[in-house]
Structures are given as C-alpha cells and as structure tokens.
Amino acid sequence: MSPSRTYEHPDTDDITIHRVLFALSEPLRLNMVRMLAERGEVDSIELGPDLPRSTLTHHTSLLRESGVVFVRAEGRKCMIRLRTDDLETRFPGLVDTVLAGHGEDDA
C-alpha cells in the first residue's frame, strides 16, 4: 500500500494578509471559499466539478499555500475545509467581510 498523501500548510502565525487577499481576489477561488463557508469540509472535486483537474488543483493549492484552506487526503479523495479559526485569529472578520462584499457584487 502506498503512503498517504500529505500536504504542507503554513502555521497560523505565518499566514499573511497579502497572500490571503491575493487568494481571495480571483472570482473562482472566492466562490470556492463561499462554498466551503456554507458547506464545511467537502471533497475538492465538488468545488469545481466542471473544471479540468489541473485547474482545480492549481486553485486549491493556492488557497492551501496562502493559509485559507486545510487539505487532507482521505483515500482517493482530497478533503478541503476553510481554516476559519486560524483566519479569524490572524484577521478578525476578514473572510466574512470579503464574502459579504462578494455577495453585493453578484446582486
């Protein structure tokens, strides 16, 4: 049996505002974050079922590397969730504010 995949994540103290804002600046990633905020942990494929696998991997990797999400392997699945507590510790209210503003843009 092959070893389980592992993913590197920045420590809470290493999450920076410019990386988080960059990650949230792209509409596709922002929609992914909105879905995670609403649904909790999901299989990453649910974040973009119509996207090419390489595109999905690129965007979820960027979200992970910026500290916005936590990714873990579960068998063949790649489970992903928002790092709500860590983001709230570093930047209180940021994700809620960005998501609220994104909703206004859609109206």
Score class of each variant (00 low, 15 high):
Val20Thr: 01
Pro10Gly: 05
Ile45Lys: 12
Ala100Lys: 10
Leu62Val: 05
Leu94Trp: 02
Phe70Tyr: 07
Val20Ala: 10
Gly103Trp: 04
Cys78Leu: 08
Pro92His: 08
Arg5Phe: 12
His58Phe: 15
Leu56Arg: 14
Asp105Ala: 15
Val95Cys: 07
Arg72Trp: 03
Thr57Gln: 12
Leu62Asp: 15
Asp14Ile: 11
Asp105Thr: 13
Arg29Glu: 01
Arg76Val: 15
Leu30Trp: 00
His59Ile: 09
Arg90Phe: 01
Leu99Pro: 05
Arg29Cys: 04
His58Asp: 08
Arg39Met: 13
Ile45Leu: 13
Arg29Ile: 10
Arg83Ala: 05
Tyr7Gly: 00
Ala37Lys: 06
Leu30Glu: 13
Leu99Val: 14
Thr60Phe: 06
Arg29Gln: 11
Asn31Glu: 14
Arg83His: 04
Glu88Thr: 05
Asp105Leu: 15
Glu88Lys: 14
Ser61His: 09
Val71His: 04
Leu99Asp: 06
Val95Glu: 10
Asp86Gly: 01
Arg53Asn: 12
His18Met: 09
Arg83Leu: 00
Gly48His: 00
Ser54Leu: 13
Gly40Cys: 06
Met1Cys: 11
His9Glu: 03
Pro49His: 08
Asn31Arg: 03
Val98Ala: 00
Arg72Leu: 01
Ile80Leu: 02
Phe22Tyr: 08
Gly101Asp: 03
Thr57Tyr: 15
Ile15Met: 00
Met35Tyr: 07
Asp86Ser: 13
Asp96Tyr: 03
Val71Phe: 11
Glu38Lys: 06
Leu21Gly: 03
Asn31His: 09
Arg34Cys: 00
Val20Pro: 01
Phe22Leu: 10
Val42Gln: 09
Ile17Cys: 09
His102Arg: 11
